[in-house]
Amino acid sequence: MEAAARMTVLAVENLSKSFGGVHAVRNVSFAVGAGELLALIGPNGAGKTTCFNMLNGQIRPDSGSVRLGGREIVGLAPRAVWRLGVGRTFQITATFASMTVRENVQMALLSHHRRVSSWWPRAARLYREEADRLLERVGMAEQAERACSVLAYGDLKRVELAVALANAPRLLLMDEPTAGMAPKERIALMALTAEIVRERGLAVLFTEHDMDVVFTHADRIIVLNRGTLIAAGRPADVRADAEVQAVYLGSRGHG
């Protein structure tokens, strides 16, 4: 299915950001549709993370627009962007170390249901089933009682995914979702993500260095180099692109 045929969830236009005179991201435009996995790839320092952080409000762009379901979100704080239905996972997992796996998800649910300012009820008894359903979905139900600080890395990534799904998002932003995982785990996590995306009609934008993951799971790929978009299209087209091979793929482009 082509992007044009899908309902556009995220539309980015002419996004730019410079730090101290250096253009980190320059005039980047792209769109992600519902049910689509879009991969953002490029060399280290190409501006991927900056680009990402502008989408959920962590960094304010110098110019350009980011529309979520038609609504401009530039200038909103990350927590406001989240309320509009954007889930996020981080390159280095960010979970609450002093809570169990289930409590991590419960925390996100408490925020989603706007229960954060209540002082009396026991938090651990609220939205327990809902949290367990999400954990079930990502295959972490058995470890619900464990502390996040003792989990294996791949499992933490799954917890992050469950947390990101807690507010029933329209868009998932995943920054290197499989970094630091073994090959088999990588494939499993992305297969799971793809499944959830199809069943819920989510849009996903992810960055990734593992080309196996990218070429297996992305519906489309956009390539960033020195802050500028140098290629966009279906995996086969991007792999064949001479410039992409030169600046990024190297010998893997021919394989």
């Binding site: 960010a94 979970t95 609450f96 925020s111």
Partner: peptide, 22 residues
């Protein structure tokens, strides 16, 4: 042990994640 207490701890454990869940 209330939702508020949990949220407070969440902010301490990982400000990044706390911000990202609203």
């Amino acid at each position: 042990f209330s939702p508020y207490g949990y949220a407070l701890r969440a902010g301490r454990d990982s400000p990044l994640r706390a911000d990202a869940i609203g």
